[in-house]
Computed example of a mutant assay.
Amino acid sequence: MKIISSNAFTGSRAWEALSIADFDGTSVRLHWTDQPYIWHINDGQEVFAVMQGCVEMFYRIAGEEKSVVLEAGDIFYASVGTEHVAYPRGEARILVVEKAGSV
Rank of each mutant, 00 (worst) to 15 (best):
A86W: 01
C54K: 14
A92Y: 00
D34T: 02
I75Q: 04
E64K: 15
Y59C: 12
I41L: 10
V69W: 07
W32S: 01
A62W: 09
S12P: 00
R89Q: 14
A72G: 14
I94K: 01
V103K: 13
R89G: 04
Y77M: 15
L95C: 13
S79W: 10
F58C: 08
G90V: 04
E16C: 09
S19L: 15
H40Q: 10
K66V: 06
Q52R: 10
A100Q: 15
D43F: 04
A14M: 05
A86S: 14
F48G: 01
T33N: 00
A14H: 08
F9I: 04
R29P: 00
E46A: 06
R60V: 13
L18E: 07
M57D: 02
M1Q: 12
I3G: 04
V80P: 05
A49N: 03
Y59G: 09
R29K: 09
W15C: 08
I41E: 10
E16K: 07
Y87T: 05
S19N: 15
D34V: 00
A49T: 09
G73F: 05
P36T: 08
E83K: 13
A78K: 05
Y37E: 08
F48I: 03
I75L: 14
G73T: 07
T82E: 11
E64A: 15
S5P: 00
D34Q: 06
F9A: 04
G44C: 03
E98I: 06
E46T: 01
G25Y: 01
V47Y: 03
E83L: 14
I94E: 01
V69H: 08
K66Q: 15
G90D: 02
V96Q: 04
L18M: 15
D34A: 07
W15M: 08
R13E: 09
I38A: 11
S27K: 07
E16R: 03
A78Y: 07
G90S: 07
F76A: 15
G101S: 10
S79T: 14
S5Y: 01
P36Q: 07
G90A: 06
R13F: 09
I20N: 02
A14D: 12
F58V: 04
F9Y: 11
Q45I: 08
A78I: 11
D22I: 13
S27M: 11
I38K: 13
V103T: 13
T82P: 03
H84G: 09
S102D: 13
F9Q: 02
I75D: 03
G63C: 14
S5F: 00
E71W: 08
C54H: 10
H40V: 03
E64S: 13
G101Q: 10
E56R: 15
A49R: 02
V85F: 06
